[in-house]
Design a protein around this nucleic acid. Structure first.
Lengths: 203, 203
DNA sequence: CTCGACTGAATGAATCCTCACTCAGTGCCG
DNA sequence: CGGCACTGAGTGAGGATTCATTCAGTCGAG
């Protein structure tokens, strides 16, 4: 039937299925929660048989890992690249905040997985923490330290703490956005967060 | 056959089994995660039979709820009371931040349950959100608005967003503290958070 | 070209284990 | 006694993972 395509399939089918399963998993996890999601649900959503999932992933948990790993790699990569174009540390932080919220705001399901499902166990959090998360915090911190050296940021602050605060604020914006019934744009919040972060709330 | 030790239990007079179960659950959930915790583990930790758990709680889920409800009630109650003694909105926010981190810093297991386990499913988050959490955010927000009226805080800021940012920052401090290997005191971080929140990071 | 042997991706029913929850008892106290 | 607080082995459902089987597609030989 589809004989015309028989020329070669180096792995188009392979990558396809894997991708389909990952996408399906993001959706299923986002809607039911990781622990309440059945592998069978993911398979159905991906249009694949239960067993096929195991040709691409060792276990249900590995699927979650893969979602996380891929997304973080992408995000940190993009951030690094865009930051190179900027010099003012304030602009860099603004860029980080924007990318952070844009990325999550662009894919609600993925955001749910990140903000909610990935937090669901200390075990995961520890791996999470060990992996890209620490790297991300370090990125914020290094930009801040750069700004301290340049004299634009207060010298009396602990950069680690500062990084956590900025991250925490962004993280909370994202979590709240997910849980909110009302649909608003997430990305624009970045400016408000940065304004308060840079200038404080005091008159 | 069973040891003749059945003579009596520590507290025959309706000993606080319920309390023991709750405490045991906090510990078990904190160490294994909610979904990986077996009711049997909780029972063992509480020194009680499996069935006894069901004399006090309808289900495993209800145990988690009870932990949450009780803690939030206590926390919000305490906060309300202590805030009455203060007048400067800045002091009030500082008080909120301190109480927030003191409370979590005082009980690592409880903190783990709050920071990690309770976030483990959108379903929980929504109830969580609906319940005390929204109330807590509202509390922060009302203090901020009070400060805006008094002219100590910037008028151009959206109080809701401000409340989320402060909460997010505190929340992240707590989460990071839990995941950190290094043991430091959580409560003192409140001052640093407040400083940045009030004054910003810009020189 | 074309047939038969072969490959391995994909399938999905069956397996098998893990718990949350039940309930028939046990013993204590008034 | 009789009720109450508790017990803990048992049950049943659920669901992750497995694996025997299928079959579309490839390849080499004639």
């Amino acid at each position: 039937m589809r004989s015309a395509k028989t020329i070669n399939l180096p792995r188009p089918a392979g990558g396809d299925k894997r991708e389909a399963i990952l996408r399906a998993a993001i959706s299923v996890f986002a809607h039911n929660g990781y622990f309440n999601s059945k592998v069978a649900d993911i398979a159905r959503e991906a249009g694949v048989a239960d067993g096929t999932v195991y040709l691409y992933f060792k276990s249900k948990e590995e699927i979650l890992h893969s979602i996380f790993d891929r997304s973080v790699d992408e995000a940190v990569g993009e951030a690094r690249k865009k930051l190179e174009l900027l010099t003012d540390p304030r602009d860099k932080l603004r860029q980080i905040a924007s990318l952070h919220l844009e990325r999550l705001g662009a894919d609600r399901d993925l955001a749910v997985v990140f903000q909610v499902e990935l937090r669901g166990s200390t075990k995961f959090m520890e791996e999470f923490s060990a992996a890209g998360f620490a790297e991300y915090l370090a990125l914020i911190r290094s930009v801040f330290e750069e700004g301290q050296r340049a004299g634009v940021f207060r010298q009396d602050l602990n950069a680690k703490v500062v990084a956590k605060i900025l991250f925490g604020a962004l993280d909370e914006m994202a979590t709240n956005w997910i849980l909110s019934k009302r649909r608003y744009k997430l990305a624009p919040m970045a400016d408000q967060v940065l304004d308060i972060f840079l200038n404080g709330v005091t008159e």
